[in-house]
Amino acid sequence: MPPEVLSAPLIVEFPFTRSTGPVLGAFLTGLRERVVLGARGSDGRVLCPPAEYDPVTAEELTELVPLGQLGTVTTWAWNERPRPYQPLDTPFAWVLVRLDGADTALLHALDAPRHAVRTGMRVAIRWADERSGAITDIACFEPAPNAGAPGDSHRAEGSAA
C-alpha cells in the first residue's frame, strides 16, 4: 500500500489588471461593436489578430484596417470532446481563419458538422449576444450563409461548404 498523500485544491490565478494599449485596445473595443480590425505590417500585410510590433521587423505598427466578417479556414482540427472553458460545449472544429482583407489567420472555434469542415471552407463570424471587449465577443465561426458568392472569389480555395 502506498502511503496516503495529503492534497488540497489550488486555483492558480493571475490577479492583475492590464491596460491593452492602442492596438489591442482598439481591436478589443472593435469586437464589442462587431468590428474586426487588423494591423498593417511593415511589408503591407494585414495582421489579424493585430500585432503591436511587426513579427518580422519588430517595427511599431499603428495603422489599423477594418476587415470583413467572412473568412477562409486555413487549417482545422476536430474537437470531439470539448474541455472546460473552451468556446463551445458541443463538438466543434478548432480553426485558423483568414478574414477577408487579412493576410494572417485568427484562432477560434467553428460550429459546423464534422463532415462540412475542411481547409478552404468559407466561414462567418457569429457574434456573442453580450459583448465586453474580449476575443470571446466572437462566440465562434459558422459556415458562411451563401458560400461561393461574390466577395470570396479573390481567395482561390474559397468555395462551397
Binding site: V12, F14, R18, T20, L24, F27, L28, P49, T74, T75, W76, A77, N79, R83, P84, Y85, Q86, P87, W94, V95, L96, L106, L107, H108, A109, T119, A134, I135, T136
Partner: peptide, 25 residues
C-alpha cells in the same frame, strides 16, 4: 496559460488542439 492573454488564452486551446492544427496543415 502560456498563450497570448488577449486573443488565445481566453479560448483555452489546449496543447493537443494546437498540435492538431499543425498536423492538419
Amino acid at each position: 496559460r502560456q498563450l497570448d492573454p488577449y486573443t488565445l488564452a481566453p479560448l483555452w486551446p489546449d496543447s493537443v488542439a494546437l498540435a492538431a492544427l499543425q498536423a492538419r496543415a
